[in-house]
């Protein structure tokens, strides 16, 4: 029983951290219509930034500034924000299929740089030597994990409240206006490019926050943490949960991460021993089927966006965006 609770606390921590990232993506896609195919770059920037600033000195690479933890985390978020600003400046004017691929490329390049820039990031070995905050006080066992979970949930709730307020604020209405009809917004004297960049950077900072918490939890980050599969996972959470709906985004995080881990557990538990070796591939097939099935039978997600503005049918959204870019 203790084991089950201990596991659930652990699971919930990772799910909640991913939930924060999904909220950040929801601001970018759900509210602003920006297709960020490189979520993992923002996530990784936060993770690396936090550990480089907050870790103990390590031989052979930058870092070990041993900053006070909240400052390190803020630093990681800032790092993520700066990266997003540069990427946004370069790519946000693109049509959204171009944008998706360009940002996907950013993420691949990010991983590649982390892997090779040994003197800055520790290279393929990654960064270790980070002391988790309050570890001396709480130990490293169940109590620590529980407190960490509470902290993460508080952050998640904070981000949620912030985004809910933002959505109903004039700024949020503007974002949706741009998403729905950029030409109209522009004709009303609004500056869509600037707004979009703001939303993109804000979303990325939130994703960077998730990355910072993630690397704090594992006290380690390496290029393997920033592979494109993470982008896919976070997108899957948003799609299943329902784009545009913050509650849905959070629920999606728990559901998809739950399905991801549960399918692994169930296969290892119930699949015959000869099939055990193939469970990895089988699991990927199942996950692919869940995603495709979801899109076939409930494309709006489990928790669809509550429409504040009337929204025309699916087909025309793309059109308005394309028009906006001509």
């Amino acid at each position: 029983m203790i084991g089950v609770i201990s596991y659930l606390v652990f699971f919930a921590t990772v799910a909640a951290i991913l939930g924060i990232a999904v909220l950040g993506l929801n601001l970018q896609w759900g509210n602003t219509g920006l297709f960020n195919g490189g979520v993992v770059a923002s996530f990784g920037a936060g993770a690396y930034g936090t550990l480089i600033l907050g870790g103990t000195p390590q031989e052979g690479h930058l870092g070990g500034f041993e900053l006070f933890y909240p400052l390190a985390l803020l630093g990681g978020m800032a790092f993520s924000g700066v990266l997003a600003w540069v990427v946004g400046k370069l790519t946000l004017r693109l049509r959204h299929d171009y944008l998706a691929i360009a940002t996907f490329g950013v993420a691949v390049a990010f991983e590649n740089v982390m892997r090779n820039a040994t003197s800055v990031t520790g290279g393929a070995q990654g960064i270790r030597g980070f002391e988790r905050p309050l570890r001396d006080f709480l130990g490293s066992g169940f109590a620590y994990n529980l407190v960490f979970l509470i902290a993460v949930v508080v952050v998640l709730a904070g981000v949620y409240v912030f985004l809910e307020r933002l959505t109903v604020s004039p700024f949020g209405r503007l974002l949706r206006a741009i998403r729905e009809d950029e030409t109209a917004a522009r004709s009303l004297g609004k500056a869509p490019d600037k707004l979009r960049l703001t939303a993109f950077v804000t979303g990325s900072v939130i994703i960077g926050l998730a990355g910072g918490l993630y690397s704090t939890f594992y006290a380690f980050v390496s290029p393997q943490d920033v592979l494109p599969i993470l982008t896919f996972q976070i997108w899957a959470m948003l799609i299943v949960g329902g784009a545009g709906n913050n509650k849905g985004a959070m629920a999606g995080a728990f559901l998809i991460w739950g399905a991801w881990t549960f399918s692994g557990w169930a296969l290892s538990r119930f699949a015959p021993i000869e099939a055990q070796l193939y469970t990895g591939s089988i699991q990927f097939v199942l996950i692919g089927m869940v995603i495709v099935g979801m899109l076939l039978w409930r494309p709006q997600g489990l928790f669809p966006e509550r429409l504040v503005v009337s929204q025309p049918g699916g087909g025309s959204r793309e059109k308005t965006q394309a028009e906006g870019l001509t």
Partner: peptide
């Protein structure tokens, strides 16, 4: 059923 993003996904 859906929009462009669904297809990408």
């Amino acid at each position: 059923k859906g929009e462009e993003l669904s297809m990408v996904f």
